[in-house]
Design a protein around this nucleic acid. Structure first.
Lengths: 167, 167
DNA sequence: CTCGTCATGTTATAGTATTACATATCCCGC
DNA sequence: GCGGGATATGTAATACTATAACATGACGAG
């Protein structure tokens, strides 16, 4: 009795299955379910919101249930954490299959719309490389970078408000 | 009976006094004291750590005491929040005096060392402008950006561990 | 003087995340 | 089949981060 997700989400989940299998990682039903909830959401989702939804089908769920799963999904590069929102989104790249099988912090950048709350993910090489270069000039070697911009998306800049952040 | 800070900190505090006076902002003794604690620390400092220290001299201090003050200092551009650490650091620019007197989200980038926990602030124009350009291409206009890189600083890359993150 | 504004005090609570230990499951080698 | 490790999940308690709501104090403008 797996939860019903959108067609798009199901497709991404199938891809995640393949990726994990390829890596020897274990995308259990719990992990798959939580990943599905994250992928299905229009906006980044908080850990406790995921927990509430999970409880609808899994009675004993508790914070560690969620946080452990999120850790797994983060390690696998299937989701990202948006620091400014303390919330989680699916990795838009769906995560490319990587034969080396190791940790995949795709450098990502997020554009967070103040008005509608939607978050767009970019994976722009220029941004990543400029930051890496500048850091290197300072003698610093980067492992992972968080890049999050807040502002207005194209829709909200031109249109009257139609949708609030809480949606 | 103001707290004793390092010479460098005192100098920055004097500068902050001047900046606030110039803007008509009120850098009260409480605000000045907390700013001093932040400036004096070697690494970013959490709100509750500041609270603990503050309590040594101010009996009734409570979370709002700290958070309100942090809000003020953030608005004045005298400190930054490091999202990945939920902690606060002084703004390295000391904050340039700005005759327009209004909010000054200096675009800053942080390099967080995994080993020693120190955080270096950069204000690199290339990083800022590339991000702005790329966002604009996506139809997005940026108000503020968080850019935080984690990795190893030059000292920790070359030297054996001498100092832990908790210092 | 008294009203408004700003700064701070005080109590309570909300929201986010982790620790520690218990249980279950599965696979592997014997 | 059985013991034993590795992995996954359950369960209870707690720590850490942040805000809400209302009270008090200090001080200048009119």
């Amino acid at each position: 009795m797996a939860a019903e997700f959108s067609r798009r989400t199901e497709s991404l989940l199938n891809r995640a299955d393949a990726i994990c299998e390829h890596r020897g990682a274990n995308l259990t039903e719990l992990r798959r379910h939580i990943l599905g909830m994250i992928l299905d959401a229009a906006s980044p989702t908080g850990a406790y919101e995921l927990l509430d939804r999970l409880r609808q089908t899994r009675r004993g769920a508790a914070p560690p249930t969620i946080y452990r799963t999120l850790d797994f999904l983060l390690e696998q590069g299937l989701i990202h954490r948006v620091e400014r929102l303390s919330a989680f989104v699916g990795c838009v790249a769906g995560c490319t299959v990587d034969p080396d099988g190791e940790s995949h912090t795709h450098a990502a950048q997020f554009l967070i719309c103040r008005k509608c709350g939607r978050v767009a993910e970019m994976q722009d090489h220029d941004v990543t490389s400029v930051l890496a270069r500048v850091a290197k000039e300072a003698g610093f070697s980067i492992s992972t970078a968080t890049i999050e911009a807040e502002g207005l998306c194209s829709t909200c800049r031109t249109a009257p408000a139609t949708r609030t952040r809480s949606n």
